[in-house]
Computed example of a mutant assay.
Amino acid sequence: MQDENEYPNWFLWLCENWIGLLFLLGIISLVTISAVVYLDNRFAKFEDRIKYVPPRSYQPPDLGLYLAGDINGEKFSRRGSMYIPSYSHIYYHGGSPLLLETTLSIRNIDSDQPVYLNSIDYFNTDGKLVESYLDRTIKLEPFQTIEFLVEERDSSGGSGANFLVNWTSEETADKPLMEAVMIGTAGSRAIAFSRSGVEMTPSKQNPAGKK
């Protein structure tokens, strides 16, 4: 049998301390893996912060950015009137009103042709005109959207409020998409829903936006 003195000291040390050495290597590996995961998550969050652009607060649309130019409305062969249901409040708890904030969203879903909006009017539950949002014809470019906000504190519309939008376009253009999105809060609860526009029959349309 070989004498222990014939083995190098480092080999003898390893033989005596191999359990502790394995434990130490395990700890180092665990710390290294944790550090890599941590740094990877930090880099991912940093990239998300760089990419994320917070939505801007609502501002009334600048109609000057939607100029229709010198157009002859008579040349458009397609025209329509859209009725969009809206609610400045709904009822709950035995008839108590819950105030809602409403966003009217009008979208040109055509990929090639513009859509022209001649009038956007807001009526209350009694059918009385509350507000006219346009004083001129405006143009929505392909895939462009315009929005109008009725704030929660504005309860003039009532539970039966509605918008009436008159529009025109080329015959080949798709009809615009119009929706009213309502949202409200009561304590810790919140409610949100939307209503799509209903196209009026030609005999019932208001092509000139007449009040």
Score class of each variant (00 low, 15 high):
113 Q>C: 02
180 A>L: 06
81 S>M: 06
80 G>L: 08
46 F>T: 15
204 K>A: 12
75 K>Y: 00
70 D>P: 05
104 L>I: 07
101 E>T: 10
161 A>G: 05
128 K>Y: 14
152 E>K: 12
209 G>M: 11
96 S>H: 01
25 L>G: 02
17 N>Q: 09
76 F>S: 00
209 G>F: 02
80 G>H: 05
76 F>P: 05
101 E>Q: 14
122 Y>C: 14
100 L>E: 03
202 P>L: 03
84 I>D: 04
23 F>L: 14
41 N>Q: 10
184 G>R: 05
95 G>P: 06
155 S>Q: 08
126 D>W: 08
119 S>R: 01
18 W>A: 15
161 A>V: 00
118 N>K: 08
177 L>C: 06
84 I>F: 10
174 D>G: 12
177 L>G: 01
97 P>D: 03
116 Y>T: 06
69 G>L: 00
154 D>A: 01
155 S>A: 14
19 I>F: 05
10 W>F: 14
5 N>G: 09
166 N>R: 10
68 A>Y: 10
83 Y>L: 02
176 P>D: 00
131 E>R: 11
150 V>Y: 00
183 I>K: 15
117 L>V: 14
142 P>N: 07
153 R>C: 08
34 S>M: 02
70 D>A: 04
67 L>W: 07
131 E>S: 14
86 S>W: 03
95 G>I: 02
205 Q>A: 11
107 R>Q: 12
86 S>P: 14
128 K>N: 13
92 Y>K: 00
91 Y>E: 00
204 K>N: 12
95 G>H: 00
18 W>G: 09
28 I>P: 06
53 V>C: 03
18 W>Q: 08
